[in-house]
């Protein structure tokens, strides 16, 4: 028996084949998956790179978090399948996208944010900026004292005034 040595070149991952894998809606708001004819009525989708590559490498598990497979590229699936996958992902990764910052007030180590998500005004409080403000590849993730996450999906897209208010707290 010949044993192939493990090198980065010989390492491979098996991905879900769109030909044998079909997603369907279950009970109106859940996602199911039929894999090689076997039905899994509730599956959970988890992105491997949720911030920088949200459309590729999506792990599919059952409710017990047992892995059923990995989607390499969502785009490999049909348009209808893609919309089901994206709908589930958008629910799981839903994060209010801040469009403008009205005010940031700082007192006693607490940072009070008044922001707008579209036209909807929201307020939240952040403690420990180093841990709770994460700036990566042009987007910013803010986590408030209750664990709620807020996103600025494109730092360049928010208005200049808002950006100037936020800049002292980014690094």
């Amino acid at each position: 028996m010949t044993v192939t040595s493990i090198t980065p070149e010989t390492l491979t991952t098996d991905y879900l084949d769109p030909k044998v894998c079909e997603f369907y809606e279950y009970n109106g708001c859940f996602l199911g998956m039929r894999l090689n004819g076997e039905e899994h009525n509730r599956v959970i989708l988890t992105r491997a790179l949720p911030l920088n590559d949200p459309d590729n490498y999506v792990c599919v598990t059952d409710v017990e978090r047992k892995e059923l497979g990995i989607i390499e590229h969502i785009a490999d699936f049909s348009a209808e399948q893609q919309s089901l996958i994206r709908k589930e992902l958008s629910q799981r990764y839903f994060c209010p996208d801040i469009t403008s910052i009205t005010a940031i007030k700082e007192k006693m180590g607490h940072f009070y944010f008044d922001v707008k998500v579209g036209d909807y005004p929201m307020s939240f409080t952040i403690r420990d900026l180093v841990k709770n403000i994460r700036c990566t590849e042009g987007h910013v993730i803010l986590t408030d004292v209750d664990g709620n996450r807020f996103l600025i999906s494109d730092l360049e897209r928010i208005d200049k005034k808002s950006r100037r208010k936020l800049e002292p707290y980014l690094y």
Binding site: N27, Y93, F94, P96, D146, G147, N148
Partner: peptide, 27 residues
């Protein structure tokens, strides 16, 4: 528990249904 939100589910006559969604802080 999702990334920034949560969901309350229940068994309604043998079927899993979603009752509500909420921000993670309400979890």
């Amino acid at each position: 528990r999702y990334v920034s939100t949560g969901r309350l589910t229940a068994d309604e006559n043998g079927k899993t249904v979603s009752l509500a969604r909420f921000s993670i802080g309400k979890l």
